[in-house]
Design a protein around this nucleic acid. Structure first.
Lengths: 142, 142
DNA sequence: TGTAATACTTAGCTTGGCTAACTTAGACTG
DNA sequence: CAGTCTAAGTTAGCCAAGCTAAGTATTACA
């Protein structure tokens, strides 16, 4: 392994720490936690089963079960049944859940856009070019 | 606000979600949690006071107090006193804490370097160019 | 038909956030 | 210099979100 790669890895490590802090700050004061927001997002296209949700969020099934309990109590999602297999539970957005999802998404995107506004046009271009690379980076070894 | 900026903001939002999942996966099974690792990292240059640590990690003082309690119980840090002001407590790494920090850092950097190895040279260049921008992005509005 | 596997849930533990309330020490004011 | 205000930490008590272990119900299969 070359020194240049190690140095790059160190920089990546540092930047990731900063981004985590950014996310933490932007999540404070929202009407749903970032985890809840992510789960609601998974439900946008339509009903999903518990195992799918757990896998998608890299979480054990019991963790997702409890998370869905909280969202259900809050009236944001509803559990259903799969007519083909009585073991599986489906989860879908309620109307209120969908509204909440869209509202939080708007707020999040606005917050990020505001950060972007603080960059120069060149910096935005550089960032835009790197996004596909970062996306690949993040999806590896899943 | 332009459509292009909003579209970029959405992409950033998606990539950040992927990176969070990446971090979560890479943190599993380590001998310290990512929060503990971050705090140990802050102590590397030398003793720090509680308020400094809390501020640096964007956390309330009681949260840091409890975190330091755990690290102290684990033998990784030691509390001390400031001779100039009896109210302030200082925190510093123990020998064991320093060893642990370095070991985890090596493991983390190696893991990131492994991800980097899956990229082409061009992709690495693109990523390297974007890191300063991301760093600026993450540090704004702190 | 009986056993194994699958899909969930619940219970109980840990980490890591928060606020409120307390203690102790320093700073400042009349 | 006495009294009060402010600053620095800690503890207590709450909640979210992760985990494993154990239990239930249903399906698959030998």
């Amino acid at each position: 392994m070359k020194d240049a790669e190690l140095a790059l890895a160190e920089q990546v490590s540092t930047v990731l720490r900063h981004l985590v802090l950014l996310l933490r700050r932007s999540a404070a004061g929202q009407p749903v936690t970032s985890q809840q927001y992510a789960v609601l997002g998974s439900l946008e296209p339509g009903p999903r089963r518990m195992t799918e949700l757990a896998e998608e969020h890299a979480v054990q099934l019991p963790t997702m079960s409890v998370q869905i309990n909280r969202l259900e109590e809050a009236g944001l999602v509803a559990r259903g049944a799969d007519p083909a297999d009585a073991r599986v539970r489906t989860v879908e957005l309620t109307g209120e859940g969908r509204e909440r999802l869209l509202a939080v998404r708007r707020a999040r995107i606005a917050a990020i856009a505001e950060e972007l506004a603080g960059l120069t046009g060149d910096e935005r271009d550089t960032l835009a070019a790197a996004l596909p690379v970062l996306a690949k980076f993040g999806r590896k070894n899943r």
